[in-house]
C-alpha cells in the first residue's frame, strides 16, 4: 500500500489539455496571442471563473442557483450607487459583496427552512430581482459616468498585460481549491450532495452546510459581479440577466456533477476558460451574437451528457434494468 497518490489522467487533466490545445489553435490561426487578445481574454474570463467556483460549490451539495445572474445586478448597482454618493473603495467593495452574500443567503435559507427545491426558489427570485430593478431602482438602476474612482481597479494591468481582475480570480481560485482539498468543510459539501442520510450519520448537519454554501456562493457572486462591473464606466443591473447560464455551463463543462456529490473546483475554472475560448472562436469565425445562445445550450447538453455517462456507470446495474424496458 503506497502512501502517495498515483498520478492518473483525470477529467480535469483532460480538460486542461483541451483548453491548452484550444489556446494553441487560436494563437496559431488568429491574433489571439497578441497582447490585446490575451488581455481581453483574461479580463473576460475572470468574473465567470469566480462565479463558476461559487456555483460549483452549490452544485456539489445537490442544489442550484438560477438567480446568480440577477444577484450580480444588485451587487453592481450597490457599488455604483455608493460611488456616486462618494464612498471610497474600502466601503463600496465590501458593501456590494455583502449585498450579494445576503441575497444568496436568503435563497439558501428559504431552500433549507421550507424544504422547497432550490431550483424553484431561485427561479422565482430571479423574477423578483428583475422586477425589482425596473420597479424600484431609479432609472432601472442605470448609473453612468462613474469615473476612475470606480474603474481604476478594473482597468489596471500588471506588466501592462495582466488585468488585476484576473489576479483576483486566480487568488480566489487558489484559495477555494485549497479549501476544498484541505478543510473539513470542503469534504462535507460532497457528503451532503452525495448522500444526505449518511452525512447525518457522520455527524454533519446538512441544513447548516447548505445555508453556509449559499452564503459563500453569494460572496463569490459579489466578487464576480464587481470584477465585471469595475471595468466599465456605468452600471446597468439588467446587463447581468442570464449570466447564470455561463456560470452553470462552466461548472458543468468542468465535470461538476449536476446530481451533486462530485466534481472539482479546478474543473470549474478550466470550464470557465473553455466556455470563453469557444465564444472567442465563434467571434473570430464571424458568427453573430445570437448564435452563442444556441451554442451555450449545446455545450451544456454535451457536458452533462458526458457526466451522466459516467454517472450511469456508477449506477450501472440499476440503470441497466430500466434501459431494458423499451
Amino acid at each position: 500500500m503506497s502512501l502517495i497518490k498515483k498520478p492518473k489522467l483525470t477529467r480535469e487533466g483532460l480538460l486542461a489539455i483541451i483548453v491548452a490545445a484550444f489556446i494553441l489553435f487560436l494563437s496559431l490561426t488568429t491574433n489571439f496571442s497578441s497582447k490585446s487578445g490575451i488581455y481581453s481574454f483574461m479580463l473576460d474570463v475572470s468574473p465567470t471563473m469566480v462565479a463558476a467556483i461559487g456555483l460549483s460549490m452549490i452544485i456539489f451539495t445537490g442544489n442550484i442557483d438560477i438567480s446568480a445572474g440577477t444577484i450580480s445586478g444588485f451587487v453592481a448597482y450597490t457599488a455604483g450607487a455608493l460611488v456616486k454618493a462618494g464612498a471610497p473603495m474600502i466601503i463600496f467593495v465590501p458593501a456590494a459583496i455583502l449585498v450579494g452574500t445576503l441575497l444568496a443567503g436568503l435563497n439558501g435559507y428559504l431552500t433549507v427552512k421550507f424544504k422547497v427545491p432550490s431550483i424553484v426558489v431561485t427561479l422565482a427570485m430571479n423574477m423578483v430581482h428583475v422586477g425589482f430593478y425596473a420597479t424600484f431602482l431609479p432609472q432601472s438602476g442605470w448609473i453612468e459616468n462613474l469615473g476612475p474612482r470606480f474603474t481604476w481597479f478594473g482597468r489596471a494591468r500588471l506588466f501592462g498585460i495582466i488585468p488585476y481582475t484576473f489576479l483576483v480570480a486566480v487568488v480566489v481560485a487558489a484559495i477555494f481549491i485549497f479549501i476544498m482539498a484541505y478543510s473539513k468543510f470542503g469534504k462535507k459539501l460532497y457528503a451532503v450532495g452525495g448522500n444526505v442520510q449518511s452525512a447525518v450519520y457522520s455527524g454533519i448537519n446538512p441544513d447548516r452546510i447548505v445555508i453556509k454554501v449559499f452564503f459563500i456562493e453569494g460572496f463569490l457572486i459579489g466578487i464576480s459581479a464587481l470584477l465585471r462591473a469595475l471595468t466599465r464606466n456605468e452600471v446597468m443591473p439588467s446587463m447581468f440577466i442570464g449570466r447564470e447560464l455561463f456560470f452553470i455551463s462552466a461548472a458543468l463543462v468542468g465535470g461538476v456533477s449536476i446530481f451533486g456529490g462530485s466534481g472539482k473546483i479546478t474543473g470549474a475554472v478550466l470550464g470557465a476558460m473553455f466556455v470563453y475560448l469557444i465564444t472567442i472562436a465563434m467571434i473570430y469565425l464571424g458568427f453573430q451574437d445570437y448564435y452563442q445562445f444556441a451554442l451555450q445550450g449545446i455545450i451544456i447538453l454535451i457536458a452533462v451528457f458526458i457526466t451522466v455517462a459516467d454517472f450511469s456507470n456508477w449506477k450501472k446495474k440499476r440503470l441497466k434494468a430500466s434501459e431494458g424496458a423499451v
Partner: peptide, 19 residues
Amino acid sequence: TRIPSLVTTLATMYLYRGL
C-alpha cells in the same frame, strides 16, 4: 440519457431562443 430535465430544458431553452 437520463440527463435531469432541469438541465436539459435549461440548455434547450437557450438553444430554442438562439434558433
